[in-house]
Amino acid sequence: MTGRLDPRGVRFAATVTTVVLAVVLLTGSGVLAALQAVVFAIPVVAGMRWSPYGALYRTLLAPRLGAPREREEATPVRFSQAVGLVFAAVAAIGYLSGATVLGIVATAFALAAAFLNAAFGFCLGCEVYGLLGRVRAAR
């Protein structure tokens, strides 16, 4: 089931993710990177409805904002969460194993993608999902 998401919730989640990843980058915390990886993994495995940051948005903000003007497909966002999961997991492994440069690089890539979504509404993972779909269709 694909479903449709409130884009404001997606941006809220990206904003929280941006803050968490900035803290990871500043502190070098492999444990925090691993926790962010878990946050990414939950909606990848169970569906976007179970996203921890999405639940925060639905509980704290959505009731105060009213219905969204538009909705977006969940599948590209879920793919984006999977990409974030890979980068956060690599970051956690890097920091926790002493390969700090690997942790920094992986965190920086994930942070850049989250920031693009939070600040500009540009979901890099969603764009990659669309590009992959066009490549598959062209075959």
Rank of each mutant, 00 (worst) to 15 (best):
Arg71Pro: 09
Ala74Ile: 10
Arg78Lys: 07
Ala92Lys: 01
Pro63Glu: 11
Glu72Lys: 14
Leu85Tyr: 04
Ala91Gln: 04
Ala91Cys: 07
Val90Gln: 10
Val86Tyr: 00
Gln81Met: 07
Gly94Glu: 06
Pro63Asp: 11
Glu70Asn: 14
Gly84Pro: 03
Ser80Leu: 08
Glu70Cys: 14
Ala74Gly: 05
Gly94Ala: 04
Ala82Pro: 06
Pro68Gly: 05
Thr75Trp: 13
Phe79Pro: 03
Glu73Asn: 14
Val90Lys: 03
Arg71Trp: 13
Leu96Thr: 05
Leu65Gln: 04
Val90Gly: 10
Glu73Gly: 13
Arg78Asn: 06
Gln81His: 11
Tyr95Trp: 03
Pro76Thr: 02
Leu96Gln: 07
Gly84His: 00
Glu72Val: 15
Ala92Arg: 03
Gly98Met: 01
Glu73Trp: 10
Ala74Trp: 06
Gly94His: 03
Ala67Cys: 09
Ser80Met: 08
Val83Gly: 01
Ser80Pro: 03
Glu72Cys: 12
Glu70Ser: 11
Leu65Lys: 01
Ala91Arg: 12
Gly66Glu: 04
Leu96Ala: 02
Ala99Asp: 13
Gly66Cys: 07
Ala74Tyr: 05
Ser80Gln: 08
Pro63Arg: 01
Thr75Cys: 07
Ala82Val: 09
Ala82Thr: 09
Gly94Trp: 01
Ser97Lys: 11
Val77Arg: 12
Ala91Trp: 02
Leu65Pro: 06
Leu65Tyr: 07
Glu72Thr: 13
Leu96Ser: 06
Ala88Phe: 00
Ser97Glu: 04
Thr75Arg: 15
Phe79Arg: 08
Ala82Tyr: 04
Arg78Ala: 13
Leu85Lys: 12
Pro63Ile: 11
Arg71Val: 13
Ala88Ser: 12
Pro76Val: 04
Gly66Gln: 04
Gln81Ala: 13
Ala91His: 05
